[in-house]
């Protein structure tokens, strides 16, 4: 068995470690507002829309319609369109109406995704890569994109923190007190959509939900204020990701994101049991 330290210090592992830290930042910022707004389903919806977008990009590239069309761009366009449609339906703050819109677009984009993937059989493995995700296969380019997006998400969240909290708490009241609630509503949704797209490649379309939503949901069970949710969800996501990588380093065939997903859900259930609410 190779020395675990050698594995942990190999370039792909270092890239994965950096990715885990970045994902933890996204989980604590975009993730906590997803939970406050009651829009956790948006993460799943956007992730599957991104998959359809990536599949379309692969198709356009494969048939030479737009050669070299980047998957991530296709994914981002579909993700953003989904988030904006859901946002438009819920622009007055009705999360329930958004859930239905997200559900419908989920069905639509998933159908498109499966249709497209069936048309690109030889390259379907590229699309499947996004469904499963692999944090150990991230390239330097992927990492750079993740870093830039994380920076944008964290910076914007801190800049409009007070406004985001107000809008999440009481959208109508926020408007009445002079906050441009609708604008912040859309900014929040865009940040969530972008976060999902960049995290997708590392953890996959299904587990992106685990990494973005669950740490914040767990932290929200026991936190008294929003700062505490941010700090705790960062560490829960980080811990889950690190344990995932260490397990993957010890047992080569284990998917790190799956371990991370298990760890953070365990945190959620523990928090649920011990929260006094």
């Amino acid at each position: 068995m190779p020395n675990i330290l050698d594995i942990l210090l190999s370039p792909f592992m270092i890239r994965a470690l950096i990715a885990v830290v970045l994902i933890a930042f996204v989980a604590s910022t975009a993730g906590s507002f997803t939970v406050y707004r009651g829009l956790t389903f948006l993460v799943a919806g956007v992730a599957h829309a991104a998959l359809a977008g990536a599949a379309l990009a692969i198709l356009l590239d494969m048939y030479g319609i737009i050669p070299g069309f980047p998957e991530i761009l296709g994914a981002a366009v579909f993700a953003i369109i989904t988030a904006l449609i859901a946002g438009y339906v819920g622009r007055k703050g009705e999360s329930e109406r958004m859930e239905v819109a997200i559900g419908v677009s989920f069905a639509l984009t998933m159908s498109i995704a499966i249709l497209l993937i069936s048309m690109i059989k030889e390259y379907a493995v590229r699309a499947w890569g996004l469904i499963m995700g692999d944090i150990l296969l991230l390239t330097e380019k992927d990492l750079l994109l993740l870093a830039i997006t994380t920076l944008i998400v964290v910076f914007t969240t801190l800049l409009f923190y007070k406004e985001f909290v107000f809008v999440s708490f009481d959208m109508e009241g926020a408007t009445a007190y002079g906050v441009r609630a609708e604008l912040y509503h859309y900014i929040m949704l865009l940040l969530i959509a972008l976060s999902v797209v960049v995290v997708l490649k590392g953890v996959g379309a299904i587990l992106v939900y685990a990494m973005i939503v669950v740490p914040a949901a767990a932290a929200n069970q026991f936190s008294k204020n929003t700062t505490s949710v941010m700090i705790w969800s960062f560490f829960i996501a980080l811990f889950g990701g690190l344990v995932g990588l260490i397990v993957a380093a010890l047992y080569v065939n284990v998917a790190p994101s799956a371990i991370a997903g298990l760890i953070v859900t365990v945190f959620y259930f523990i928090a649920l049991i011990f929260s006094r609410r």
Partner: peptide, 20 residues
């Protein structure tokens, strides 16, 4: 119409209107 998902202290809520 107010969300109870946001963990927020009484004082911060009252401050919210002013800071807005």
């Amino acid at each position: 119409r107010i969300s109870t998902n946001v963990p927020i202290r009484v004082a911060d809520i009252v401050l919210m209107g002013r800071l807005a």
